[in-house]
């Protein structure tokens, strides 16, 4: 040990220092990221008549981000993530019915309840194959769906909870009819949570999640308590999904049973895969593409939309497994390699 930590020769020390500079900056914000976050601002001015649709994109982005945390980073596959989204939405709905419509309180409680459910259900996912995890997450979501469906006295059953009264944000900004406040609110929540998620995935904790996803067997031999990390990230992802559901309920002032439905979970998985997993931005880009496509295609005919959705899934699996971002980065990598090999070939 001593020799490992012992001082190295001065010149090699500077060599090491130089070579680390790039790594130290690896968590910095990149120019493309700044550019990306100009999009919601630009959209605000460019599409003033579409705030409801834009809010939906922001909410779905947040929801996809929550799945990316548990699936893209920690590798826990889920076909029932709508459970947490639904818990968040119903939390806001039920609070609103009792006159407790403060948005931020709603967010906190939604995150809390979703996190509690996430914490307890995470223990069901520690062992078992991908398939078992799929089935268990699906089962938990279906159970919640049935509960919400049958306890219609509390949840409104299939009718949902219409007309939730939401108080102004911070007591200042009233949710208006055009969804302008709602959109700004949704984007701000998305950005804040994205910023936190970005810190998390670059932290040692986040790095260990990537490690678990790539090689869970090796991690205990690096003193990592794998199960504890998985429980933590699943709880976190659940809380994020809860917030997404809460924002949806607040901006729509309505909760429908479909927030808990199987299709909500399946669509979400598709959105994340479409955008690319394990990159934070994948879910966001997937959400933009998905919601915009759905908006235009289901205007033509809702059933056609489903057909194209299915076709997209099949093609994605067969030809573009990394999703939009994964395929793009693979393409860039190839170009870079070609660019590198060319001068070498010329010199030889």
């Amino acid at each position: 040990m001593t020799s490992l930590a012992s001082p190295v020769a001065a010149d090699s020390a500077t060599a090491i220092h130089d070579s680390l500079r790039r790594f130290r900056r690896s968590a910095d914000w990149k120019p493309l990221e700044y550019l990306f976050w100009c999009l919601p601002v630009a959209a605000y001015f460019l599409f003033p008549g579409n705030y409801l649709l834009l809010s939906q994109i922001a909410v779905t982005s947040l929801f996809a981000l929550s799945l990316d945390l548990i699936f893209g980073y920690a590798g826990i596959i889920s076909l029932g993530h709508a459970a947490f989204f639904g818990v968040g939405a119903y939390t806001v709905g039920l609070l609103g019915m009792r006159g407790m419509g403060d948005p931020l309180t709603g967010l906190v409680l939604a995150a809390l309840f979703a996190a509690i459910l996430g914490f307890f259900s995470s223990f069901l996912l520690l062992r078992g194959s991908d398939l078992a995890r799929l089935m268990v997450t699906l089962g938990v979501a279906l159970m919640l769906y049935e509960l919400a469906n049958k306890f219609s006295g509390i949840t409104g059953g299939v009718d949902g909870i219409p007309g939730i009264e939401i108080k102004p944000v911070l007591g200042l900004f009233e949710f208006d009819l055009y969804g302008r406040t709602g959109y700004i609110y949704a984007v701000v929540v998305l950005f804040v949570l994205f910023w936190i998620a970005r810190r998390i995935v670059h932290s040692p904790f986040g790095q260990s999640l990537r490690g678990i996803q790539m090689n869970a067997q090796r991690m205990p031999a690096l003193s990592v308590p794998v199960n504890r990390r998985l429980v933590a990230v699943y709880t976190l992802g659940a809380a994020y999904a809860g917030v997404a559901g809460a924002v949806l309920a607040q901006t729509n002032q309505f909760v429908s049973l479909s927030v808990l439905g199987f299709e909500n979970s399946a669509d979400l998985l598709l959105i994340l895969i479409l955008g690319g997993t394990g990159r934070l931005y994948g879910g966001l880009i997937g959400a933009i593409v998905f919601i915009v496509a759905k908006h235009f295609l289901s205007d033509l005919n809702p059933q056609y939309w489903q057909f194209w959705l299915g076709l997209a899934l099949v093609l994605l699996v067969m030809y573009a497994r990394g999703g939009i971002l994964g395929t793009a980065s693979k393409w860039l990598e190839k170009r870079r390699q070609r660019a590198q090999s060319r001068p070498v070939g010329g010199a030889a």
Partner: peptide
Amino acid sequence: GASWFKPL
């Protein structure tokens, strides 16, 4: 390993 805010 459990610290989650500061980048690695």
